[in-house]
């Protein structure tokens, strides 16, 4: 039977891909015509987290608890971030803050934060006593 991948790997891949996407947006000038870049990266991401890497182990109760904690903190942070963005935007003449890129970055940052938090909550250092 093929050994299933650790669920942490899914989040590690997510962190890498989202970081790359954010960096590519930041250095967007290097790729003037990058409108296909994001869909390609999303396709590569979906492929790598499903078919290529193989099946992941089932989420157990500790995974679900850690995911829930990560989701909760991320949700509060996103709400706070959007609140601050709207406050700044409504008190500023510069309405660029409402550009769609701000929301894309917020969404990407939320995905990144969720995976990072999960990795932090789910870490199991060897000092905890693994026997294999």
């Amino acid at each position: 039977m093929k050994k299933k991948n650790n669920y942490r790997n899914f989040h590690i891949i997510t962190i890498i891909v989202v970081t790359v996407v954010m960096l590519l947006y930041f250095i967007g000038n290097i790729f003037p015509d990058n409108k296909w870049l994001t869909p390609v990266i999303i396709f590569v991401y979906l492929s790598s987290t499903t078919k290529l890497i193989g099946p992941y182990e089932k989420k157990d109760e500790l995974t679900k608890i850690n995911l829930g904690r990560a989701n909760g903190i991320t949700l509060i942070t996103v709400i706070a971030a959007l609140f601050v963005i709207s406050l700044i935007g409504s008190n500023s003449d510069n309405k660029d803050i409402f550009a769609s890129e701000v929301y894309i970055f917020t969404a990407l940052a939320a995905i990144l934060m969720r995976s990072l938090l999960f990795i932090v909550f789910d870490r199991t250092p060897e000092s905890l006593g693994g026997d294999e």
Binding site: N6, K58, D60, E61, L62, T63, D122, T124, G129
Partner: peptide, 12 residues
């Protein structure tokens, strides 16, 4: 039906 990490944390 859980992950090894869960058993490690349980033991601790």
């Amino acid at each position: 039906g859980v992950r090894r990490e869960t058993i490690i944390r349980l033991e601790k």
